[in-house]
Simulated assay, not measured.
Amino acid sequence: MERVTLRIPEQQIEEVERMVETGQFPNRSEAIRAAVREMLDERGVSQDAQGTDRPWAKV
Results as ranks from 00 to 15, higher is better:
P26C: 08
Q24P: 01
V45Y: 05
G23Y: 12
T22F: 14
V20D: 12
V36W: 00
R37S: 02
D48P: 15
E30Q: 14
D48T: 10
G44N: 11
Q47S: 10
G23P: 05
N27W: 03
A34V: 03
A49H: 11
V20F: 11
A31S: 08
P26E: 09
V20Q: 10
Q47K: 11
A49R: 14
V20E: 10
Q50W: 04
S29P: 00
E38Y: 05
E30G: 09
G44T: 09
M19L: 13
E30I: 01
M19F: 09
D41H: 04
N27M: 05
Q47T: 12
G51Y: 12
A31I: 05
S46T: 14
Q50P: 10
V20A: 08
V45R: 12
R28K: 15
R28W: 06
M39I: 04
L40S: 01
A49Q: 13
V45I: 06
L40A: 08
Q24A: 15
Q50L: 10
E38I: 00
E21S: 12
E38W: 03
N27C: 07
N27E: 06
Q47F: 01
Q47E: 15
V45M: 07
E42L: 09
E21K: 15
R28T: 01
V36K: 02
G44Y: 05
A34T: 05
T22I: 12
A34C: 01
Q50F: 00
I32K: 01
M19Y: 08
Q50N: 14
A35F: 02
A34N: 09
M19P: 06
D48G: 09
G23Q: 14
G44F: 05
V36D: 00
G51M: 12
T22N: 15
V45E: 13
A35Q: 04
N27T: 02
P26D: 06
